[in-house]
Design a protein around this nucleic acid. Structure first.
Lengths: 154, 154
DNA sequence: ACTGAAAACAACTAAGG
DNA sequence: CCTTAGTTGTTTTCAGT
């Protein structure tokens, strides 16, 4: 069972801030020996706490300054329809993330596109075209804010 | 202005898959000399294409298996109300991300909590307690799927 | 852009406290 | 968990092609 003591909490926080620090720097910041730091990080990996390290790219800088959240209701709400729509959503290069949800909407799809024209054609030509899509609601995103670090609760 | 040739596209894709590869591995995968690879990555950083490297943690493994999206309508929709709510949302340790949106909802708040009890008290005691919050709609998330790599469009 | 080589730095291992 | 020391491997820079 994982151990969320102060050292591990600070390691997780630091690695979320910057995943490419050397073990030396990490150990210095956390205040442990390098050997201890290395072992802790390996253990966090082995325990499945750390699942990966990912480079973040600036969306406007890669030509995708416009973001939207698209709420989708399916009909019928069968497993086949859900599985098909999930595949569709994840196959689109415009998609950043998709949420399969309980409630009013069956999916929320978070997309980033070059402009409002691309958004319009994405929604109408690619999403609305799917046979199980009963209703679409597109919401423009002014700001996408992340809270980091993600911390263990309790 | 950035150059999204094949080499840079593959670098961005590989680094999003695994941000902790050695420059050696990266160069081997991409098929360039190490010196070229190193220079390209540095340039992507300098050009603001790469904004950081972040470790990802497993939410269930850190005691936060339940996710929800909370739609929030504010009243009045003044700048002060928006600024206050943004601060509130980002101050909560349960928050993963917040979207400031145009349309029906003013904010969508993505949270991860230990259980449904924690979700209920988060919504009622922390969010609904804010004076500018006019309406809240909580949607449970069954699946949170990410599309990676995020690619330049066009 | 690639190659090769040298210097600096970091990772990793292992033994002992 | 820390320290030390030794080995290996990587990064980084700088020639030259």
């Amino acid at each position: 069972m994982p151990n969320f003591d102060t050292v591990n909490r600070r390691l997780l926080a630091e690695l979320q801030r910057n995943a490419r620090q050397t073990n030396r720097e990490l150990a210095r910041i956390i205040g442990t020996a390098e050997s201890t730091c290395l072992e802790r990080v390996r253990l966090l990996h082995a325990d499945g706490i750390i699942t990966g390290h990912h480079t973040e790219v600036d969306l406007p800088a890669i030509g995708r300054p416009v973001q939207a959240i698209i709420g989708v209701r399916l009909s019928p709400k069968t497993r086949a329809a859900v599985d098909e729509f999930r595949s569709l959503a994840l196959s689109l290069p415009e998609t950043l993330a998709a949420f399969h949800t309980a409630g009013g909407d069956d999916f929320l799809v978070h997309v980033a596109v070059p402009g409002t024209g691309a958004l319009d054609s994405l929604v109408l030509d690619r999403l609305a075209a799917h046979r199980a899509v009963a209703e679409l609601r597109t919401t423009l995103v002014y700001e996408h804010l992340r809270r980091r670090p993600v911390e263990p609760l309790l």
